[in-house]
């Protein structure tokens, strides 16, 4: 068990999400940086899809009620390991991408985020063992199911830890957290050609600022106003909703794009100008109020190639960690 001594807003249990239910209106949810979750899990000998904690802000204080091994990924939140009374620090400046071991009773403190809003991830050997709902342990905050009672974690909550596999962990090996650059590669979307020339140009030539009205459902961007071609007989918005996915960039009538994220609903009626390729979706975890974002167009073939490359990198990591497994 992990006991939450001090929680922060939007501290949630997430795994690789809940695909396969969009036809019933169920969003995907899951860790915003799914890549980092999978890397951390592999390092711990967990199933890649095991659930961890998504930490959106600090300070957070957790007590481990059993001997545990952990990996931190994502943004650096100045983590340290403290004793049972969280008075004395045993280890500070924990690095992302390395395994640390805690004795039963020891505490983990995430002190402060360098850039508030950029997320950190905490994976624990055995994974967070909350009930599987619709194929996933991810917390759906909008509909209040999954995770621990469908809610963000609060002080006093106790998170069950799963049975660790026999796969050994890699105390000396680390994984590299992908570094974010806020440059998102996109495919033009179904409604791209309905936008006027200025808007089609601006999407790629201008930078876009993430506003405070952003959350796990969507990031609202601010910049040039994107407008549809002027045509008196065409409606300014889609009259019928279409199925939508995380990564899609929708443009409501005010011209300010909304970038759909993990918790996005399954249908939407705003024109879809472009979509972020799946390879770059993890970067949304590190885009916060004030972040400047740029978009670059890639072809469908490039997008497929990049997705494949990313999968191969994960496969290589899995193989490399397996090779280093010491004989029993």
């Amino acid at each position: 068990m992990i006991e939450v001594l001090l929680s922060s807003p939007l501290l949630t249990i997430q795994d690789t999400g809940r695909p396969g239910w969009r036809h019933l209106g169920v969003p995907r949810c899951g860790m915003m940086d799914e890549l980092a979750l999978r890397q951390g899990n592999l390092l711990l000998g967990n199933d890649e899809h095991a659930a961890g904690l998504e930490i959106t802000s600090a300070p957070v204080l957790l007590r481990f009620l059993q001997d545990s091994a952990i990996v931190l990924m994502g943004a650096d939140m100045q983590a340290s390991i403290l004793d049972q009374d969280h008075k004395n620090t045993r280890l500070q400046g924990l690095l992302t991408g390395f395994v640390y071991q805690l004795a039963a009773g020891e505490c983990l403190r995430l002190h402060a985020a360098k850039t508030p809003g950029q997320r950190a991830l905490l994976m624990v050997r055995g994974g967070c063992d909350v009930p599987v709902v619709l194929g996933s342990r991810s917390t759906d905050l909008m509909s209040s199911f999954g995770g621990l009672n469908g809610q963000a974690l609060r002080a006093g909550d106790k998170i069950p830890i799963g049975q660790a596999s026999h796969t050994p962990i890699h105390l000396k090996t680390g994984v590299r957290q992908h570094s974010w650059n806020h440059k998102l590669r996109v495919l033009t979307g179904p409604d791209f050609t309905k936008f006027d020339q200025h808007s089609r140009h601006a999407l790629f030539e201008k930078s876009w600022m993430v506003t405070a009205q952003s959350n796990r459902m969507g990031l609202r961007l601010q910049g040039d106003s994107l407008q549809l071609n002027e045509s008196s007989d065409k409606p300014s918005t889609r009259l019928l909703s279409i199925g939508v996915l995380p990564g899609l960039i929708q443009v409501p009538p005010d011209g300010q794009p909304i970038l759909l994220a993990a918790d996005a609903q399954t249908t939407g009626g705003y024109p879809a100008i472009a979509s972020i390729i799946s390879t770059d979706l993890w970067q949304l975890a590190y885009m916060t109020n004030g972040t400047r974002v740029r978009f670059a167009e890639v072809s469908l073939a490039e997008a497929h190639g990049l997705a494949r490359h990313q999968q191969q990198q994960m496969d290589r990591l899995r193989d490399a960690l397996r090779l280093r497994r010491s004989p029993a």
Partner: peptide, 14 residues
């Protein structure tokens, strides 16, 4: 294409 893994089939005019 709505992302490289999502195909949108639209059977009616917008």
């Amino acid at each position: 294409f709505v992302s490289e893994h999502g195909i949108l089939l639209e059977f009616v005019a917008s």
